[in-house]
Simulated scan of single mutants.
Amino acid sequence: MTRELPSILLAAGGTGGHLFPAFALAEELGRRGYAIDLVTDMRGDRYGTGFPSRSVYQLPSATPGSKKNPIALGRAGFTLLRGVRKARKLLRTLRPAAVVGFGGYPTIPPLIAARMLGIPAIIHEQNAVLGRANKALARYAAAIATSFRNTRKLDGPLAAKARFTGNPVRDAVIEAAKIPYASIAPGGPLHLLVFGGSQGARFFSEAVPPALATLPAEMRQRLKLVQQARAEDVAEVTAATAAAGIDAEIAPFFKALPEIIAESHLVIARAGASSVAELAVIGRPSILVPLPHSLDSDQLENAVSLAESGGSWCIEQKDLTPLRLATEIGGLFGEPQALARAAESAKAQGQAGAVGLLADLVEEVVGGGRA
Rank of each mutant, 00 (worst) to 15 (best):
A303H: 02
T40I: 01
P96A: 06
N134Q: 04
Q221L: 09
L94Y: 11
R324L: 05
A348S: 09
K178P: 12
A346I: 00
K86M: 15
A248Y: 01
H265N: 09
I108S: 15
G331Q: 06
S53N: 12
S345T: 04
F195K: 11
T79G: 03
A138H: 07
D41I: 03
F254C: 00
A201N: 00
L59P: 05
I174G: 15
A22G: 05
R139A: 11
R230S: 00
L225M: 11
G334I: 05
I184R: 08
G187N: 04
G331D: 05
F102G: 09
E125N: 01
A128R: 02
V366Y: 12
S294A: 12
L358D: 04
N69A: 14
S66T: 15
Q126S: 03
A348R: 14
L81V: 14
L158R: 06
R149H: 11
P96Q: 08
K347F: 04
A160N: 14
E344G: 03
G245Y: 01
A72D: 05
F20G: 02
V169A: 07
L73D: 13
A182F: 15
V289Y: 07
G272Q: 10
S66L: 13
L361E: 07
A280T: 13
R202D: 03
T165A: 08
L19P: 00
P21F: 08
P109A: 12
R115C: 10
D37L: 10
I112E: 10
L190H: 03
R152M: 06
V39W: 05
S275K: 12
E335F: 14
I122K: 09
A217S: 05
P290L: 09
E232P: 01
A128D: 05
E335A: 15
V100M: 06
G188W: 00
A159D: 13
V289N: 01
I246G: 03
L117P: 10
P96T: 09
R3K: 15
P290D: 11
T321R: 05
R132I: 14
A142E: 12
R202S: 07
R152S: 08
L291K: 02
M219V: 04
G245D: 02
R32N: 08
A136W: 07
F253V: 01
R75C: 08
G310P: 04
E206W: 08
K347I: 02
S7A: 07
F203T: 04
T214N: 04
R46H: 11
Y140F: 10
Q228A: 02
K178R: 13
V226L: 13
A280P: 13
D360M: 13
G245C: 02
L320T: 08
P210F: 01
I261W: 14
D233W: 06
S274M: 14
L94Q: 10
R88L: 14
